[in-house]
């Protein structure tokens, strides 16, 4: 059920990116899709009643081995690591898209993509 709500978020973002004709609205739709995908990947690694994948002093038996409790209750670190890079990349791509929007606004004086198409002829 949380998966379905997360997918609903993705669908609203897709609707926004497809139907709206304001350029900034399209960027917003793409950002919402990014959020939902990140959320979905982290949700896949979640374990009910789990702990964060950070080892504390209590989780170590003498000799450097981990306790079985930590191994069986830690959430998955792999999707978290992938999402961590994806979030920073999304900020870079957001800046690129916004700079394209600003440049287009200076050129045509509007954010409306249908009027931009008309001006191109």
């Amino acid at each position: 059920m949380p998966y379905a709500l997360c997918f609903l978020l993705f669908i609203i973002g897709l609707y926004c990116a497809v139907v709206k004709k304001n350029m900034v609205k399209i960027v917003i739709g793409i950002m919402v899709m990014e959020y939902s995908v990140n959320l979905f990947l982290v949700m896949l690694g979640f374990r009910t009643g789990g702990t964060a994948p950070i080892i504390g002093r209590d989780d170590i038996v003498t000799g450097g081995t981990l306790t079985e409790l930590f191994i069986n209750s830690s959430v998955d670190p792999l999707p978290q690591a992938l999402v961590l890079t994806a979030i920073v990349i999304s900020l870079g791509s957001l800046a690129l898209m916004i700079s394209i929007c600003i440049r287009t606004y200076e050129k045509y004086g509007t954010f409306d993509i249908t009027r931009i198409r008309r001006l191109k002829g």
């Binding site: 900020l91 870079g92 800046a95 916004i98 700079s99 600003i102 200076e106 050129k107």
Partner: peptide
């Protein structure tokens, strides 16, 4: 990125 975005001024010549 933020510096470049804030340095942008409307290009009056175009």
């Amino acid at each position: 990125i933020i510096l470049v975005l804030s340095m942008f001024r409307p290009d009056t010549s175009t």
